[in-house]
Amino acid sequence: MSVRFLPLFLFLPFSVLAQGFAGLGTDAEGYETPRPGYEFQFPADHGAHPAFRIEWWYVTATLTGDDGESYGIQWTLFRSALKPFERQGWQNPQLWIGHAAVTTAEHHRFAERIARGGIGQAGVIATPFSAWIDDWEMAGPDMETLSLSARGADFSYEMNLKAQGPLVFHGDRGFSVKSADGQASYYYSQPAYAVTGSLRLPEGDVQVTGQAWMDREWSSQPLSKDQTGWDWFSLNFDSGARLMAFRLRGARGDFTSATWIAPDGTTRSIPDGLVETAPLETARVAGREIPVRWRLKLPAENLDIEVSALNPDAWMETSFPYWEGPVTVAGTHQGRGYLEMTGYE
């Protein structure tokens, strides 16, 4: 899910560009950069890495309510470092941005929180695990067992997550390459949480159950200069298998990457060019054409599916706007999942 850091650079052009950052992955300003062969240390790596420019804790869940309806929720905490260090007080250079959403077929409700580190308003600590911004919180004794809460003007939710399998490392043991130029990030996931919880919506309270997927990623390098946006999929199939796939759209051609996760949690990394994605239908969302139905093929796994948005209007009108919402899967495989799209003007 490394593609998700582009929005953070969209959010920060005034700082990054003003410092003469030309979009290339240099560490001239003292940021660390990901390198292959990194040995993850847990639980420490569940926590924040302030020496890297960007990082996130990204949870999406596909849920079914006691009313039989389909629901999707998002809970995201971004960290964006203005400078590669921590310090106490207001002048802490670590910025934190929270995004939360609840999506049904009819409604897409979302909220955003922005805070800085150093004063206790937002942050992440590894043990006992806790990630928070204002009253939004993801916490647990460890990453296996988490409680998740967020609240907006017209929604709130509280979820309990229980991991059903091992952590999954993308790319080369968690070193995930993002472009032909070699930009990369550290990227691992917990794709198999069982979820129970409750939603509080203007229509009423709903008890929900379902599956959640958490992505953890950090890096210092933006994407290649020519890359303008991406389409990212996280899918849970009824067979128990899972797929993470993304396509980065660039002037010099697309860059694709995927991870096939077998029901037992074993993974197969799928290099550039082997996943085929094609939009089948667009919808007018927030003044732009957004693909809301996709064909996705992975010949190596005999996969040929159609991915359709539960709610085409799942637009996140936040500081950096993007589309993020639950999808249903039909074709050779059935299931549910989440789709994120950026860069559609």
């Binding site: 005034f14 700082s15 990054v16 003003a18 203005l82 400078k83 207001w90 002048q91």
Partner: peptide, 8 residues
């Protein structure tokens, strides 16, 4: 002017 200049 960037957030970096203003905030840090």
């Amino acid at each position: 002017l960037g957030l970096t200049e203003i905030l840090t």
